[in-house]
Computed example of a mutant assay.
Amino acid sequence: MRLNRYIALCGICSRRAADLLITAGKVKVNGKTGKLGDTVTNSDSVEVNDGKWQKISTPTETIVYALNKPAGYISSAADPTSKKVVTTLVPPTPRVFPVGRLDADSEGLLLLTNDGDLAYSLTHPKTHVMKEYEVIGECARTIEKYQLEHKLDRVREGILLPEGRTQEAQIKILSFSPGRAVLHIGISEGKRRQIRRTLQKVGITVIRLIRHKIGGLSLDELHIMPGKYCILTKTQIEVLKNGV
């Protein structure tokens, strides 16, 4: 199989990210620097440097953890500046990495897997996998509900951020009182702190953000307490794949 796919199947990263590692000279095959387009088999010795050199091998099976991420944890496989990374909340082996991100202040459903291809398909904007959130926000107490709806229309249609315009968002006001609103938001992309930044653009400060759903997988149906995880069944993994 191609070298980038092999690296992805080992749970190191997606195929696209593997291409970047290969281009940067951070992959060796049988002691020699790997090249884009190289093919390998399980009998080859493959090493990757994603911080330090390590020999990798393909996992025996795909594993996906569904984690109810608590606030305060970083969505990363490792972070030298913090001990509170999400990978410390799941078993250390096999090695897994987060599928997409939830910023440290956010909570809710986060997937971790050793399958780079699955992670790529769930996070790439072109696949339009919907992620759904409950958001508690504060706004000016003088704003009426109909005025808030008009402000949210800007977010629904797409907000211009420095890295580009956001895609359309699904937004419903679940409850409203002067200075406070609870929103249901659905988006199919994941720019950095996207919901917080786009709502801030229209005068809403996010107080709490909880992701409830990824594709056809719902936190409510999984019944996971904050800080806990479950291992997805093959059927549940297929539900995710079918939503791509």
Rank of each mutant, 00 (worst) to 15 (best):
I136A: 05
S218V: 01
H124R: 14
T142Q: 13
S106E: 02
G100C: 01
I159R: 02
G31D: 08
T81Y: 14
G116S: 10
K131V: 10
F176R: 04
T87W: 04
K151W: 12
K84H: 12
K32N: 10
E157N: 14
M225I: 07
I210V: 15
A77G: 13
I187G: 01
G11M: 07
Q200I: 00
G108M: 06
L240T: 09
I143L: 15
G203A: 04
V27S: 06
E107A: 01
A119N: 08
I195G: 02
I195K: 03
R15T: 04
N4S: 14
V40P: 06
V182H: 12
L174H: 00
K131P: 11
K131W: 11
K241M: 14
A181H: 06
T62E: 12
V182W: 14
K84P: 00
V202G: 01
G215L: 05
L199K: 05
K201R: 13
D153E: 15
P70Y: 09
V40K: 11
G190D: 11
P59H: 08
I195A: 03
V40D: 06
S175C: 01
V85Q: 02
I231M: 14
T127K: 15
S76R: 10
G203S: 04
T113K: 08
M1P: 05
H124G: 05
Q54W: 00
M1F: 10
C10F: 07
D44G: 08
F176Q: 03
A17I: 02
V86D: 03
T205M: 07
V86E: 03
I173T: 09
I7E: 02
D38E: 12
P59K: 05
Q200R: 10
D220L: 12
S75W: 13
L118Y: 10
I237N: 09
E163R: 13
E168V: 02
Q54G: 00
H212T: 06
V48P: 04
I210Y: 13
V29F: 02
K145F: 00
L9P: 00
R211F: 09
L240R: 13
P125M: 13
S106A: 13
A8L: 08
N242E: 15
V244H: 10
P125Y: 12
Q194T: 04
R5F: 05
D103M: 03
D117G: 08
P80W: 09
I237C: 09
D115L: 10
R156G: 01
E238R: 15
V129R: 11
L209F: 06
K131Y: 11
G203L: 04
A77P: 03
T205Y: 09
Q170T: 12
V46S: 06
K83L: 13
K69G: 02
G186Y: 03
I207G: 05
K28T: 03
A24Y: 06
M1R: 13
N4F: 07
C139E: 00
K191Q: 08
R5T: 11
V244L: 13
G72N: 08
L217Y: 04
L240P: 10
L161T: 09
I207Y: 00
E134T: 15
A104T: 12
A24S: 15
N242W: 07
H223K: 15
R16K: 13
P162W: 09
N42H: 12
G51Y: 03
L112T: 07
K201V: 07
I7Q: 02
